[in-house]
């Protein structure tokens, strides 16, 4: 396996890379379910988290993962108000280079920014979400969770439901699941589900089609009002039309379907309250597996920082 420096997209990885990261995530999960949660794998290495967008889960998940591998963690505070345009990203890159970090974990509202940082940096750059482009660590934790639940991903049917157009999670998670042999479909309000000609993924626009497809997993996306410049669908109808309502939950439970969600959940929008306590919901498992997957990602990458100049 050729060592890789960065994790920017799922598409850039070989099958061997994907399988290795997923396999090692099992071992990583074993580590932190024991009483001693730390291993010295990244002792003396420095990890920087650089989040231009607000995030609670992903950022703390990466920080916990790095901590359990004994790395030193620095948080680079980027006040969103002071960063107006991309010029500042160029300046930030220069600053980062001077800090000689080994790993840079970056999130930005504009697609492609982690790639620009990776190009100019010897540090291993991990894309923690860029615009509507990619969120590869989420893809790994989702694939890991499905694999853990079903034994394997191949042959499973996963339907991703919600705002596909703006979702980096939908893009990355669908890519990894397809690479592992699963079937993926999209469902959501018409303007928010791109045509199959663009995505290569079957497109549904109502629950009847979704149930008829006989999925194994319902992957609910967050309705991201912050990414919408103008209304894409009639406000107020979302839960009724596309959410897991109390009635739909009965059918879902009857068919023993699994519910996943990348969090944070908008209660009463994507999921009704009862769905939060549904026995076949993997939402909390996803959070736990996120740490294991991110430990495995950090372990897998090879920063080129031995000879920092």
């Amino acid at each position: 396996m050729k060592p890789i420096k960065d994790l920017l997209t799922i598409g850039a990885l070989s099958d061997a890379d994907i399988l290795s990261i997923l396999d090692n995530a099992i071992a990583m999960k074993e580590i932190f379910t024991k009483s001693v949660k730390k291993v010295p794998v990244l002792k003396g290495k420095s990890v920087l988290t650089l989040f231009y967008e607000p995030s609670t889960r992903t950022r703390s998940s990466f920080e916990v993962a790095a901590d359990r591998l004994s790395a030193d963690i620095t948080t680079f505070s980027v006040s969103t108000s002071s960063v107006v345009k991309g010029e500042s990203v160029q300046d930030t890159i220069d600053t980062l280079m001077s800090m000689k970090m080994d790993y840079i974990i970056v999130r930005h509202k504009n697609s492609g920014i982690p790639g620009i940082i990776a190009k100019h940096s010897k540090a291993a750059v991990i894309n923690a979400g860029d615009g509507s482009h990619a969120h590869p660590s989420q893809a790994f934790l989702d694939a890991f969770t499905i694999r853990e639940k079903f034994g394997e991903v191949a042959g499973k049917r996963i339907i991703i439901i919600g705002d596909i157009l703006h979702s980096r999670v939908a893009r990355s998670t669908s890519l990894i699941l397809k690479r592992l042999g699963a079937e993926v479909a999209y469902m959501g309000p018409g303007p928010l589900v791109p045509p199959t000609a663009h995505t290569g993924i079957t497109r549904f626009t109502n629950w009847e089609q979704a149930f008829a497809w006989q999925p194994d997993v319902l992957y609910m996306l967050r309705v991201q009002n912050e990414r919408m410049d103008a209304p894409f669908f009639p406000a107020g109808d979302y839960h009724k039309a596309f959410g897991v309502t109390t009635e739909r939950l009965e059918r879902i439970a009857g068919e023993n379907l699994v519910i996943m969600h990348p969090g944070p959940v908008n209660r009463g929008v994507e999921l009704c309250d009862e769905a939060m306590d549904y026995s076949n919901s993997l939402i909390n498992t996803q959070v736990e597996n996120g740490i294991a997957a991110r430990m495995s990602i950090l372990y897998h990458l090879s920063p080129q920082t031995k000879n920092h100049d």
Partner: peptide, 17 residues
């Protein structure tokens, strides 16, 4: 005005409007 490239499979892939 929101977009930065042609609405296409590439805009989907790159996550651009």
């Amino acid at each position: 005005h929101m977009g930065s490239m042609h609405h296409s499979e590439t805009s989907y892939k790159l996550g651009l409007h």
